[in-house]
Design a protein around this nucleic acid. Structure first.
Lengths: 120, 120
DNA sequence: TGGGGTGCATCAGTGCCATAATACAGCCAT
DNA sequence: ATGGCTGTATTATGGCACTGATGCACCCCA
């Protein structure tokens, strides 16, 4: 009896979205400090085994949000306050759109977030 | 300044997966008790404004897992013990694959599950 | 023995995603 | 100024998931 739940959490996210999340985490965690230059699209593409255009698509999001500054011919730099703004924005989205579903889901499964704080 | 994060949680889940989750929740919650007949693909499709085949694809999962019994030409019935098995399986998957990511994500955003137990 | 209810198979259409190969525009150190 | 690094635009292609329309096989009941 398998009882597998393939893609239950939609784990097949597009590459450019996974890269976006990964970069966002790096900015928040200070891996890419404010003022620092992000890896070039070609460099990150080579490192991640992805296509440069896919990486560019991931970076696009941050430009639109004004979190990185593009210097044509030079590179992309993390804007001042980007980490805090990014964390704040992600936190708001998480609390508003994800957490309620997670809560009800856990309730249905007989789980309590408080009990899992230290466990696992 | 937008700072939007479209599809940050991949909110564009396929219809058949949303239906699957919804049906699973109904089975666990006893909306479709053990031994009861599930709504026909056409009926549920009409009710949800979806395509019968999309509903059938959602049901498919439960057949493979042996949680529902198909009587050709009659309908699909919830198997004995389906609710408990389903809840148990989903709980295991959740704890193993989803919760760790949620935990680290919340930590990055400066959130503590215990603090949100009653809030919101 | 029909008629209306099941589930299911087949085929086709659509759109997104990822990749690729170029080519271009800008900056900088040598 | 030249070579080498940046990001970007263009176009084309293959793959895959999702959705949709039609028709068939099956079963029960009147």
């Amino acid at each position: 009896m398998a009882l597998m739940h393939p893609m239950s959490a939609h784990t097949n996210r597009p590459v450019y979205l996974k890269l976006r999340d990964q970069i966002a985490a790096a900015i928040i965690d200070g891996v890419y400090p404010e003022g620092a230059m992000l890896p070039s699209v070609r460099a990150l593409a080579a490192e991640q085994g992805a296509n440069p255009l896919t990486v560019a698509k991931a970076y696009q999001q941050f430009q639109n949000d004004g979190l990185v500054e593009v210097q044509r011919g030079v590179g992309m730099y993390v804007v001042r306050g980007a980490a805090e703004r990014l964390r704040s924005a992600e936190r708001e989205v998480f609390l508003r759109e994800e957490w309620p579903e997670i809560r009800s889901r856990m309730a249905r499964l007989g789980l309590d977030p408080a009990d899992l704080t230290l466990a696992c």
